[in-house]
Structures are given as structure tokens and as C-alpha cells.
């Protein structure tokens, strides 16, 4: 067998559309996951014991079971409770919920890591409660939360490949289909691996740049 990725690269427009679906799923999943995760963490912190325990149990279930099982439950189980979802919206919901569970834990750690003394000190200096949260608590949290948040973004990109199993036309599904059509499955998977690798490496670098910026910004303001 001759290794010839050219066969695959001739199909660039199709690969591009798969990549686009992956990127949209990924970015929307991150945005939704961060938003819902932040709400969950905030509700758990300020919402009282019952809310904390209830949401905590839900988060543990989502973190303790494979993403694939969650996807199957939603995709194949959904129609039995009147939830008929096409593969893309189903994938998007599953990825967002999964992301939210993990992001909520990151924000929870972020809340816990800001010393209460800092917020109290800000209030003593005459800042209002809201100002103290906006100018002290959230900037301090951002710096703590950023590295694990970027890490999780990378994990989510890789989990999104799982959605190919329920026929979401994302990168993995598209490229491996091209591979079987062209009898070049190995080349296809190789190209696929390289694309994911490149995105992951780029994300990691971007994260480190953001981290440096943020910590410089913080020391400049201090």
C-alpha cells in the first residue's frame, strides 16, 4: 500500500465543511458550557443547601458517566419522551450539558480560591458590594480559572469527535467517510489526527498568551 494523503486533500471543500461543523459545535459548546457552568456554580454557592446538593449530584452524574452514554441517552432515548432531535442539535445539547458540568466545577474552585478577606478589604475601602465583586472577585477568579478552562476546551474539542457516532457531520465523520469512499482509510485518519493536533496545539498556545496578558494586566493594576 502506498501512503498518499493527496487523495484526501483533494477533497478539501468537504473536509472544510466538516471542520466548520466541528468548530461551531465546539465554540457554541464552550460558550454555553461556560455560561451555564457559571450559573450552576453561582447557584450552588449562594442558593442554599438544597440547591447545592441537588446540582452537585447532577454534576457528579454527568462527570462520572461516559459522554457517549449521555449522547446515546439523549439521541435514542429522547424520542420516547417526545424529544425528537436531529443529530446536530442533539450533539450540541449533549456537548453543552457535558461542558457545563465540568465548567461549573472549575468556577466553584475559582470562587473558593479567592480569599474572602480580599472582598471584605475592598468593601472596607468603600467599594460597594457589586464593585467589590466586579473589580476584585471576578478578576482574581479569572486568573485562577483560565488555565483549567483552556484545558477543558481542549478536552471538549476531542469529545466532539464522539458525536460522529450519532452521524453528526463533523470532522471525524466527514473525513472517515471520505476515507472509506476513496479506499484510503489510513490516509484519512492520519489527516484527521493532524488537523485535531494542530487545533489543540494552537489552543494551548493561545491559552498561554491569554494567561500572560491577564497576569500582566493584574500586576499593572495592583
Amino acid at each position: 500500500m502506498i501512503f498518499n494523503p493527496q487523495i484526501i486533500l483533494e477533497k478539501l471543500p468537504e473536509i472544510g465543511s466538516g471542520l466548520l461543523v466541528t468548530l461551531i459545535l465546539w465554540l457554541v459548546g464552550i460558550a454555553g458550557g461556560v455560561a451555564v457552568g457559571f450559573l450552576v456554580a453561582t447557584a450552588r454557592r449562594f442558593g442554599g443547601r438544597a440547591i447545592n446538593l441537588g446540582l452537585g449530584a447532577l454534576v457528579e452524574v454527568l462527570r462520572g458517566t461516559p459522554f457517549l452514554i449521555q449522547v446515546f441517552l439523549l439521541y435514542y432515548g429522547g424520542p420516547f419522551v417526545g424529544l425528537m432531535l436531529d443529530p446536530i442539535p442533539c450533539g450540541l445539547i449533549a456537548l453543552t450539558v457535558y461542558a457545563a458540568a465540568y465548567y461549573s466545577e472549575i468556577f466553584r474552585a475559582g470562587y473558593a480560591a479567592v480569599p474572602p478577606g480580599h472582598v471584605e478589604a475592598a468593601e472596607c475601602l468603600g467599594l460597594s458590594r457589586l464593585q467589590a465583586i466586579r473589580r476584585v472577585q471576578i478578576p482574581e477568579m479569572a486568573l485562577i480559572v483560565l488555565p483549567p478552562a483552556v484545558n477543558l476546551a481542549v478536552i471538549l474539542l476531542k469529545e466532539s469527535a464522539v458525536l460522529s457516532i450519532i452521524t453528526v457531520p463533523e470532522l471525524t465523520a466527514t473525513v472517515s467517510a471520505i476515507g472509506s469512499q476513496q479506499y484510503a482509510f489510513l490516509e484519512a485518519i492520519f489527516v484527521l489526527a493532524v488537523i485535531y493536533w494542530a487545533i489543540v496545539e494552537a489552543t494551548g498556545r493561545l491559552g498561554r498568551v491569554a494567561e500572560n496578558r491577564l497576569s500582566r494586566l493584574r500586576t499593572a493594576n495592583a
Partner: peptide
């Protein structure tokens, strides 16, 4: 490589 590519792939 092995940390950057989905396990499925």
C-alpha cells in the same frame, strides 16, 4: 500527539 488527538481517532 496522543494528548492532542481524540481517542476515537
Amino acid at each position: 500527539f496522543f494528548r492532542g488527538v481524540p481517542l476515537l481517532v
